[in-house]
Amino acid sequence: MRIAIIGYSGAGKSTLARTLGERYGIPVLFLDTVQFTANWAERDRGEARAMVEAFMARPDWVIDGNYRNFAQAERLALADRIVFLDFPRRICVPRAVGRYCKYRNRARESMADGCIEKFDREFFCWLMWKGRTKPVRDHYQDICGKYAGKISVLKNPAQVEQFLREIQHSQ
C-alpha cells in the first residue's frame, strides 16, 4: 500500500500519516524532515530528492507533505491512494497554534531534529494567504482531476474520522 497525503499546513497531514502508518504497519516519511536539517537549515535539493526517491522504491509507504520539488508527480502517480486535507483556515490556524503550544521549545516527530516548533509572522502569513494562493489552489484542483479515481478529499476532522472508519471496515 502506498499512500500520499497532501493538504494545507495545520490540517493534520502528519497526524494522519502516523495513524495510517501504524494501522497498516508501513513506514512513514515526513517530507518536512527531508526539507530541513537542524535549526531549520534547508537540505540540498538533490540530496533531498534522492532521499524521497529511495523511500518511494519501497513496496509500501505513507508520505506526508506537498513539496513539488521532491518527486511530487512521481509520488502521486505511484500512490495507491491520495488523501487531500482540504481544510479551511478556520480549522488550520487554531490547529497550528495548538501544535505550537504543545511542542513549544522542542521539535516534533514530523520535523528534523533541532527544528524547534515555531509560530511566527511568516508562518501565520503562510497559513492565511501565501499557502492558499490561486496557483496553489489550482494545483490542488489539477491533482484532484488527474487522480479522481484514487483521491479522497477531506474537508474537516469529521470526514477524516469517517475515512479512517471506512478503511478500517474495508480491511
Rank of each mutant, 00 (worst) to 15 (best):
G10H: 03
D80A: 08
R90F: 05
S170A: 15
T15N: 02
A54I: 09
A71V: 02
A96P: 14
D80L: 02
A158M: 11
R49K: 14
R104S: 06
Y147Q: 03
W126C: 04
H139S: 09
P59Y: 00
Y140G: 07
N39E: 15
D60R: 15
G7W: 05
H139E: 08
A11V: 05
A158Q: 15
D80T: 03
R132D: 08
G12K: 04
E74M: 09
V93G: 04
C115H: 07
T37L: 12
Y147T: 04
A48I: 00
R81E: 14
F119T: 06
G21Q: 09
K155V: 00
I151A: 06
M111A: 02
T19Y: 15
S14R: 01
Q141C: 03
M51F: 09
T33I: 06
Q35S: 05
R18K: 15
Q168L: 13
S110V: 07
P157Y: 04
E117L: 09
R18W: 03
E166M: 06
R165E: 12
G12L: 05
I91D: 01
P135K: 06
Q171D: 05
D32K: 12
I116Y: 12
G21R: 10
I143Y: 02
V62Q: 12
V153T: 08
Y103T: 06
A158S: 14
D86R: 06
I143W: 05
A48E: 01
I26P: 15
G12A: 09
G10M: 00
D64T: 11
W129K: 12
P27R: 10
F124S: 01
C115A: 07
Q72C: 08
Y8G: 11
G7A: 12
D142H: 12
A11Y: 01
P135F: 00
M56T: 11
R49N: 15
V153P: 06
K118C: 10
Y103E: 04
E74N: 11
R23P: 00
Q171K: 01
W129D: 01
P157F: 05
E161T: 11
A79L: 15
P135E: 00
A96M: 15
R99A: 13
P27K: 00
A17H: 07
K130A: 10
W129E: 02
R23F: 14
D142S: 14
W61I: 08
V83A: 05
D64P: 11
N156H: 01
F119V: 03
K155D: 00
D86I: 07
N105K: 10
G131K: 02
I167C: 07
R90I: 01
A38L: 07
R106D: 02
I143R: 08
R23A: 12
E166L: 08
A148V: 11
F123D: 01
F87P: 00
Q171H: 03
R108M: 09
W40A: 13
L29G: 03
L127G: 05
E22M: 06
G114M: 05
R89V: 15
P94V: 07
N156M: 02
L29M: 14
A4N: 00
M128A: 14
R137A: 13
A79I: 07
V83L: 11
I91A: 04
F163P: 04
Y67E: 01
V52P: 09
W40P: 10
P94W: 04
K118V: 05
D64K: 08
G131H: 07
A57N: 10
Y67C: 08
G46N: 13
